[in-house]
């Protein structure tokens, strides 16, 4: 076990080093002047030179990269060119909002996706099955930003059911401010009994979570349906049927257990995909998380922020992959870590 953990950690460091190396040099060879990005609006030649020196941009690139790595290991991820705040604190400040959004999106995709997969597999030629298949394909193929704008147009602009943007109603911070305990705003509003904030937060969560979950929902539904159909055609299921076991028991106790492990893999991979999916969704819904910060950083070529987000994304992928392997091994005894 220790050997496996050691191997994983070593490969993780290699992946992170490669991610930092390529991101640093790619973001620096594009024709852009970080000093101008830092200054922002109009400037003078003297100020430009002063900032270039302040940011160490007057040094050769390999030295800049070495210094970046050294500082990063000490917890100094540099300063965002656009917000002027430390990148690490900017990321940590926004992370809970993104994790809550991903949690709801994955939860929705997993629960609804598996249920839809079961319904579609139960009567593969029925109307419901066809409808679910179309919905799943739409979920996979429709771009998140387009779906986000469409849902906004319908449920905000037309029916006025949900709010357009943000994580909570704006008044909440003045009337029912959230007392932060864990840093996760929805969870904190729940555990502190701030139900006004909780209700507001859940209302704000619906559209972004739905939008973000569309891709995972499509994948999980298709995977659940396909696996279930395959398992339901196997010999041990026929034997169970011949022994008079009810269809309900066959489906939920015998077939589902064997059909689920690949769904977990897909869920894990699509969760990792959601990290980048939040770039668009948070931008559309003004969600105060990492995604919107990442999108703005990319647009403004804020390379210290891009570096930080890339490294965080890489860590996210590694952790999720590791968790998926562990869960898979737990669910399927044939699989060893």
């Amino acid at each position: 076990m220790l050997r496996i953990i050691w191997k994983r950690v070593t490969s993780a460091f290699l992946v992170l080093f490669a991610a930092s190396f390529f991101t640093f040099f790619l973001s620096r060879i594009v024709p852009n002047d970080p000093a101008l990005a830092y200054i922002g609006g109009k400037t003078t030649a003297a100020d430009e030179q002063k900032v270039r020196s302040l940011l160490g941009l007057d040094q050769p690139l390999p030295i800049q990269y070495f210094k970046y790595l050294r500082d990063m290991l000490k917890g100094n991820w540099g300063y965002s060119l656009s917000t002027k705040q430390p990148v690490l604190s900017e990321i940590l400040k926004r992370l809970p909002a993104t994790l809550e959004l991903i949690f709801f999106a994955v939860g929705f995709a997993l629960v609804v996706g598996i249920i839809c997969g079961i319904i579609a597999a139960k009567k593969p030629k029925g109307f419901a099955s066809s409808f679910i298949r179309i919905a799943a394909i739409a979920g996979i193929s429709v771009p998140a930003f387009w779906l986000g704008l469409l849902l906004q147009l319908l449920f905000v602009g037309k029916f006025h059911i949900f709010p357009a943007t943000g994580e909570f109603d704006i008044d909440i911070k003045f009337t029912n401010p959230i007392h932060h305990i864990t840093g996760f705003p929805l969870f904190d509003s729940l555990i502190t009994g701030n139900f006004t904030a909780l209700t507001s937060g859940l209302k704000h969560m619906v559209l972004p979570a739905l939008t973000l979950s569309a891709y995972s929902f499509g994948l999980i539904t298709r995977m659940s349906r396909g696996n279930l159909l395959e398992v339901l055609g196997q010999e041990y299921i026929n034997v169970a049927r011949a022994n008079g076991i009810s269809e309900r028991l066959i489906l939920f106790k015998l077939a589902l257990k064997n059909a689920i492990p690949p769904v977990i893999t897909v869920t894990g991979l699509s969760t990792a995909y959601l990290i980048t999916g939040t770039f668009f969704v948070e931008q559309v819904y003004g969600w105060p998380g990492i995604g919107g910060f990442a999108a703005n950083s990319l647009i403004s070529v804020d390379y210290p922020a891009i570096m930080g987000i890339t490294i965080l994304g890489a860590v996210g992928y590694l952790v999720i992959n590791f968790l998926v392997d562990v869960i898979y091994a737990k669910l399927d005894p044939r699989v060893k870590l």
Binding site: I170, D171, F174, N176, P177, I181, I191, G193
Partner: peptide, 24 residues
Amino acid sequence: IVLGATVITVPQIASGATPVSVFK
């Protein structure tokens, strides 16, 4: 855990009461 935690309820300003005039 959830129910227990809700006991640590932080006092809230009455719902819907805007303490000052806010321009958004």
